[in-house]
C-alpha cells in the first residue's frame, strides 16, 4: 500500500512537468491548428536560459522562470509573425514540415552555441526532500508541480479574463468573423504562439532542474506533449492539466512494472495515446469539437 501511495505521489509530481509542457502545446494546437514539432526545441531553449542565468549569475532557478517566459515569448512571437504565419492557410503537412525545419534549426544552433555536453542546474536544495509518512518528497519536484499549476492557472486566467484572451478565443472559434470585428489576426496569432512558447520556456526551466539537458533532449517532450493533450482533450487548459497528471501517473506505474524499467516509456505513452484516440477521441475531459 505504501508503495502504491508512493507511486501515486511520484507520478503526480512528475506530472507537473508534463502539465507545463502540455499547456503551451495544447494552446498552439487548439487555437492555431498547428501541431508544433518545434515545441520540444523551445522547451530546451528555456532550459538553457535557466542554466545560463544560474551558472553565470548564480540566480535561483525558480527566479529565472519569468525570464524564460519573457525570452521565449519574444522568440515565439517573432517565429510566428515572421515564418509560420506565412503558411497558415496551407495543408497540415506543411505546418508539420515547417515546424520540423524550425526544430532542426533551433536544436543545431543550440549545439553550435552550447555543444553537446550535458548541463544541469543544481541549486543547494536539489536532491533534498522531506519525509511524509514514510514517503520521500523531493523539494524540487514539489515546487515544480506548484509552478506548473501556477502557470496553468495564469494561462487560464489570461485566456478567460483579458482582452487578449478573448481575441484568442475569437480566432479559435472563427478566423474570418474575428477579422470582421476588428481583431488583428497576424498579431493575435503571433501572441498565441508566443504564449505557447513562453509556457514551453517555463517547462524547460523546470526540466533543467530535474534532469541534465542537451540540445537534443527536447524531442521526447514534443511527443509527450502531444500525448498529454490527447489524453486530457484538446481545447481547455484544465483538461491539459488533468492529461499531464494522468500521464505522470501512467509513466510512474509503467516504470514500476518489473523488468521493463524506463526503456518502454515511449511505447507505453504511444500505446496509451492510440488507445485513447480510438476509444475516446475527445480525451478524458474534452468535448468533441
Amino acid at each position: 500500500m505504501a508503495a502504491f501511495v508512493q507511486l501515486v505521489i511520484l507520478g503526480l509530481l512528475a506530472g507537473g512537468v508534463y502539465v507545463a509542457v502540455g499547456v503551451g502545446f495544447g494552446l498552439v494546437w487548439g487555437v492555431l491548428n498547428i501541431v508544433n514539432l518545434a515545441h520540444g526545441a523551445l522547451v530546451i531553449v528555456g532550459g538553457y536560459v535557466t542554466w545560463q542565468l544560474f551558472t553565470a549569475f548564480g540566480l535561483d532557478p525558480f527566479l529565472t522562470l519569468p525570464v524564460d517566459a519573457v525570452a521565449l515569448f519574444v522568440l515565439g512571437y517573432a517565429l510566428q509573425r515572421g515564418v509560420i504565419n506565412r503558411i497558415i492557410r496551407a495543408p497540415l503537412l506543411f505546418t508539420f514540415l515547417l515546424t520540423f525545419g524550425l526544430n532542426l534549426v533551433i536544436v543545431n544552433v543550440l549545439l553550435l552555441i552550447f555543444g553537446s555536453d550535458f548541463r544541469s542546474v543544481t541549486p543547494t536544495y536539489s536532491g533534498q526532500g522531506f519525509e511524509l509518512g514514510g514517503i520521500v518528497i523531493p523539494y524540487v519536484r514539489l515546487a515544480s508541480l506548484g509552478a506548473a499549476i501556477l502557470l496553468s492557472t495564469g494561462l487560464a486566467f489570461l485566456l478567460s479574463r483579458t482582452r487578449v484572451g478573448l481575441s484568442i478565443h475569437a480566432i479559435a472559434a472563427d478566423r474570418d468573423a474575428a477579422q470582421l470585428v476588428g481583431i488583428d489576426l497576424r498579431h493575435t496569432y503571433a501572441v498565441t504562439y508566443g504564449l505557447g512558447a513562453a509556457c514551453a520556456g517555463v517547462a524547460g526551466g523546470l526540466i533543467a532542474m530535474i534532469q541534465a539537458i542537451t540540445p537534443t533532449a527536447g524531442e521526447p517532450y514534443t511527443l509527450q506533449a502531444f500525448v498529454v493533450v490527447i489524453l486530457g482533450g484538446l481545447g481547455r487548459v484544465s483538461a491539459t492539466v488533468v492529461g499531464g497528471l494522468a500521464f505522470g501517473l501512467v509513466e510512474a506505474f509503467g516504470q514500476s512494472i518489473p523488468g521493463s524499467g524506463s526503456v518502454f516509456a515511449n511505447a507505453i505513452a504511444f500505446g496509451l495515446m492510440v488507445l485513447v484516440l480510438v476509444t475516446r477521441p475527445q480525451g478524458l475531459m474534452g468535448r468533441l469539437r
Binding site: 503537412l93 518502454f264 495515446m273
Partner: peptide, 24 residues
C-alpha cells in the same frame, strides 16, 4: 485502428508507432 483517425491525429499516431516499434 489508426486509419480511422484523420489529419493531425493520424500523423502523430503514426509517428508514435514509428518510435514505439523501434523502442520495442
Amino acid at each position: 485502428p489508426l486509419l480511422r483517425l484523420r489529419g493531425h491525429y493520424f500523423a502523430v499516431a503514426s509517428l508514435g508507432v514509428g518510435v514505439a516499434v523501434g523502442e520495442l
